[in-house]
Write a protein that binds this DNA or RNA. Sequence first.
RNA 1: GCUCCGGUAGCUCAGCUGGAUAGAGCAACGGAUUUCUAAUCCGUAGGUCACAGGUUCGAGCCCUGUCCGGAGUACCA
Length: 543
Amino acid sequence: MNEYLVKLITTRLDQLGWPAERLQLSRPKSTENGDWSTNIAMVLARDLKRAPNQIAQEMMDGMELDTDIVEKFEIVNPGFINFFQSTNYLKSQLKLILDTGDTFGQNDTGKGLTAQVEFVSANPTGPLTVGHGRQTVLGDTIANILSWSGYAVTREYYFNNAGRQMRLLGESLKARYMELKGQSIALPDGGYEGEYLIDIAQDLLDKSPDLDNDTDINVYKEYAEKSIFAIIKTSLERIGVIHDVFYNERSLYDDGKIDEVLSLLRDKGLLYEKDGATWFKTSELGIEQDRVLVKSSGEPTYRLPDIAYHREKIARGFDLVVDIFGADHIDAYPDVLSALKVMGLKYEHINVVIHQFVTLLRSGEVVKMSTRKANFVTLDELIDEVGADVVRYFYIMRSASSHLNFDLDLAKRQTEENPVFYLQYAHARISSIFRRAKERGLEKDLSHADLSLLDEEYTVALINKALEFPEVVDHCRRSLEVHHLPGYLSELATALHKFYTEYKVIDLEQPALSQARLALLEAIQITLRNGLRILGISAPVQM
RNA sequence: GCUCCGGUAGCUCAGCUGGAUAGAGCAACGGAUUUCUAAUCCGUAGGUCACAGGUUCGAGCCCUGUCCGGAGUACCA
């Protein structure tokens, strides 16, 4: 109906010689104002220097509406044009849900296009924390949305297993290892104090008891990396996240990509040496101060490989690139983008989603955390405590730009207050009705159901709510804001529960109506299930 | 100081590129079950959309300034 009206109105506007670029249709909050509405007459009023009502009238006078789709329209002060859909249309859309089934909600916006979503990208220095968790679920859900929009999506994890931090990690493991052997060595300055390194040291000791102080530090480093990556991958798996590519920063050095960036920037006259370091004249690119790309020690800062990595992303030809960063990395990306820009690369298809921090609440108190120190809560512990479904839901129920309060008490509650169970219950409730219908000898017969019997108020409201699903998916895709989906699914669940309380589905006295309602519930369950699948949350048939 | 994010009901937050009477959940209070799962539904109450200006037919949304909270402002990542 949306597309139908857009096309129709655009044609009419062309006819009148009025601009159509600013045409938009929306679903009014109240059904009194129709199923779809446009404000185009008010938008045009200024340019045309005429009253909106008049414009609307002239527009509509010359328009022929297909009554099979639009039952009627009205022009309302100050100039809204409201359209009311026909029951036939509603019926056909419901049928569409049943016919498309598992693919209902998908669209082909990204058909034939590729997208890359880079997320998590935590270096293998420790288990994923609660903070990484938000990014993990956010990135995976965005990737799911893009898949549903037709993109061929690559989920990518970028990591660095070289450099100072990893050296510290190796040294920290060595200290733990020697400690277990009874030789106390102090942890290095700024080293990793987490207990997980003690466990890893124990493993290493079991496997290779003969290492000592003189053993090459790389042995410790590599063992730590391998072990920690195993832990990280297990955590990711537990919440259903699978990356397609683990991109090692190292390869950028091996393939000469780092040097290429340096020489490209040097050619542009944007590099200079000072105090033994190589500086990038970002101040000439609208950034407050210059940045160091190569330290006086000869090691690059993280910015240099980041630039090279993004140059590779562009070279790899993705049509859409999404980077997920925590708010603590907010300073990095303007440098990267401006470097890409001066190198003459197209970077407009690179999108950066920055999410704010996560605060864990227990009994109303903030749980204090700090990485590198021993006292952080890991993603694994969180999953242990509340389960993967709840973790996924809670992480994306708020917009990424808001701080997230993760209320552990609420998350743990297996009751009505928990929004995850509310959704899942709606799905299970439908399954339950199906089971009951079968017991009563009422076999679902979707192809013969007479959908025109579905005309009561809350039934129509429920169908309309389900029909919004593809629009919500598209909204999430356009904005890269996925929190709209859980919000929408809650509304859909509410509409379902409301329908349930108002009408009886299984009524042996009225088999035709029962069949129609079973078909309706089938469509609603499809919608709920598809939505939950995008969120990566299970859709139970019984609770 | 500068940059970024936020400030909307008691609490946690929605509010899609400015649109119709600002919404939801939780908490509070009151109701609904001989009935397909009450893990549900309905109702009541709750608002100076931080503040002050501006833009216009119309501003929670855009612009300017101020205040408050968070993050960043490294030759850490």
